[in-house]
């Protein structure tokens, strides 16, 4: 874990992330990590983390990682989520990696791990980069 972490200002501006309780941290190496402390409100009736929470977390980390690199707004076109392990409590963390960065589109992948580094879900997405010169 990085010695100095700062909360992303996006967290306070984004009502949905605030509503879900995502904590966004930027580490020393400039990697962005989203953390979520799992609460009852995040669970389905099977008492496991709801699939919509994984998808929200993966899309958020992918778009934040992309925005950080291209310094432009981005819009998701396609999101694929693989659900690999069920989880009911604790803290989960999401990280992303940019696989392809073009002028107008990008391909990003991401993963969610638990505190024991068990892989919980994997995501991949195609994003449109909304550059100011594209309007």
């Amino acid at each position: 874990m990085s010695a100095t972490q700062q909360k992303n200002t996006c967290f306070t501006k984004n009502p949905f992330l605030d509503h879900l309780g995502f904590e966004i941290e930027k580490q020393d190496n400039k990697d962005i990590v989203i953390k979520l402390s799992i609460d009852l409100k995040h669970l389905n009736t099977n008492k496991t983390l709801h699939g919509g929470v994984h998808a929200s977390m993966l899309d958020t980390i992918q778009s934040l990682a992309l925005k950080e690199v291209c310094q432009s707004n981005v819009a998701v076109m396609n999101l694929n989520v693989q659900y690999l392990s069920a989880i009911s409590s604790g803290v989960v963390s999401a990280r992303a990696r940019i696989n392809m960065l073009g002028y107008k589109t990008a391909a990003v992948e991401s993963a969610i791990h638990d505190e024991q580094d068990v892989l919980i879900a994997k995501g991949s997405g195609i994003y449109k980069i909304i550059r100011s010169s594209n309007k």
């Binding site: 984004n14 992330l17 919509g52 929200s56 977390m57």
Partner: peptide, 16 residues
Amino acid sequence: FLLQEDGTVHPGVFAT
């Protein structure tokens, strides 16, 4: 609370 900072709906809402 379903919106993002740019005023669009968060994609996670539709995924959910």
